[in-house]
């Protein structure tokens, strides 16, 4: 029995994306802080997952966006390239469309404000809440950060506690610290 060649497999996965038949394309991306599962819809990047347990993540993506979820590297190439550049210290801003349409208004507002926090700078949860016009919602902002679908690209690692502590991070505090050090943030 002749197995499906890597080339044929790749050809199909490319064609599926090219013909716009996918609800979600994803791929695994190697970085200095581990392998990430990076996924996108036609509208933009929709998920960056740490500790990519692909099976579980694929189920979640299918549930949220539709069953046509397929590993397809090509649509993820721009994100992969920009992440590579970021980790090499050569990129400070991501230039990628994001798809956060499924989130609540409040979530989207907070994430939009988060996206404006510059490279290498930090902001407190309370300050970010104030910028999103909900000054007393620091705790709710913490929850939004914790569930951020696009860590790194939407830089929730730049949000810290009022006492200067790192507090928490969906990918683990060690990663938060690594990212902030990479950006040269003063901690």
């Amino acid at each position: 029995m002749s197995p499906v060649s890597t080339e044929l497999d790749r050809r199909f996965r490319d064609a599926a994306a090219r013909e716009q038949l996918l609800d979600v394309a994803y791929d695994l991306v190697d970085t200095p802080i581990g392998t990430l599962l990076v996924a996108g819809t036609e509208r933009g990047l929709c998920r960056i997952a740490y500790d990519a347990e692909p099976e579980r993540e694929i189920d979640r993506l299918a549930h949220a966006f539709g069953v046509r979820v397929l590993r397809s590297p090509r649509p993820i190439d721009p994100a992969r390239r920009q992440l590579d550049e970021y980790f090499e210290g050569e990129r400070q801003r991501f230039d990628l469309a994001v798809d956060i349409a499924l989130l609540t208004d409040f979530n989207r507002r907070v994430l939009r404000e988060l996206a404006r926090v510059p490279y290498g700078e930090v902001v407190t949860y309370g300050e970010l809440a104030a910028r999103a016009a909900r000054p007393r919602a620091a705790r709710a902002v913490g929850t939004v950060m914790n569930r951020n679908p696009l860590p790194i690209v939407l830089p929730c690692h730049r949000v810290i506690g009022a006492n200067g502590k790192l507090v928490g991070y969906g990918g683990g505090l060690e990663r938060k610290e690594t990212l902030l050090r990479l950006e040269g943030a003063r901690l």
């Binding site: 029995m1 002749s2 197995p3 499906v4 044929l8 050809r11 199909f12 064609a15 599926a16 013909e19 038949l21 996918l22 609800d23 539709g66 069953v67 046509r68 397929l70």
Partner: peptide, 29 residues
């Protein structure tokens, strides 16, 4: 793929394979 190779020979199985799964994708939802 093995089925298509048996039916069509290897030369033609590759295109048929891609077409099979593209067609499946279209109908899948």
């Amino acid at each position: 793929y093995a089925f298509l190779v048996r039916r069509l020979g290897r030369d033609r199985a590759d295109d048929a394979f891609q077409e099979t799964f593209l067609r499946a994708l279209r109908a899948y939802p």
